[in-house]
Amino acid sequence: MTIFLQATVEGLSLAAIYSLVAIGFVLIYKSMDVLSFAQPALAVVGAGLISSLAVDRGVPFWLALFIGITLTGVLGLIVERTFLRPMVGEPVFSVAILTIGIDILLRTTLDNWIGLNPRYMGDPFPTFGNFGSAQFSGVTIKYLEIAALTTAILIIIALNIFFKKSKYGVAMRATSFDQEAALAQGINVGRIFGLVWFIAGILAAFAGFFITGGFNTLSQTSFVVALRALPAVVIGGLDSIPGAVIGSIIIGLTQGYVAYYQYDFETITGITLGNGFSLLAPYIIMFVILVLKPDGLFGTKEVERV
């Protein structure tokens, strides 16, 4: 039971990270019909900014966190304005390729800065030593995991309120639904696109921080974690925010349970799944769900066939 709970906690905290990236992905897809493969890059660039401020420049941790996350939002906005705005109306496939290019550009720049030694994010509570952890009847929960979960939940609630109550939130939904009719209402659709990328950048930076915080550190391979939001999005259906969250939970929990139960499974059945199977499992699940339901669990929009 303890192991089960431990696996669940770890799975859910991964789900929180994935859902932050996944929601950004879905927001962009819904409003612009762009499949953005640049989200993982934004996540690690966000982490890089936080680390460079908090560790290299000695900016107080919370301030560094705030600035790093905001700057990543601004970076998202710049990416949209310079690379994607001119591509409006181009085929989904070409734009997707472009985002892969953006991903590579951002990550190479970041990798040059990271170098070979992993980077730390700084520590909000120096006395706890790298964020520390709490014990609940045998289950260890890292403060970082608690932070990831509460942040994700708060962000989801905040986005919900934003989409229901705020002028720009409603305008964003309208733009996703019918861009031309949104223009006809006087909505500045370009500004909406910028806003979407700003939000997606902020969400990615939060994810980047939770991926690399504590002992995890930022290295040249950290983006792979954020990349796992992709199967989550595909499972949920590219254009559904609840779908993105549920997809993330499915992926996160799968990964958690496989990590903890793979050894038992292998000893009982005698089948060897191999090292790091928990990292492969999300893609297998994605494959199975896609075969059963090509539009994902909650998807409605059909992606242009390429």
């Binding site: 409603v170 305008a171 309208a174 031309e180 209402q185």
Partner: peptide
Amino acid sequence: RIFSELTVVENLRLGGHTNS
């Protein structure tokens, strides 16, 4: 071209986007 997924009032609010 109404926004059929949105509510009636939300549609109206969108019409008033430039006239908050």
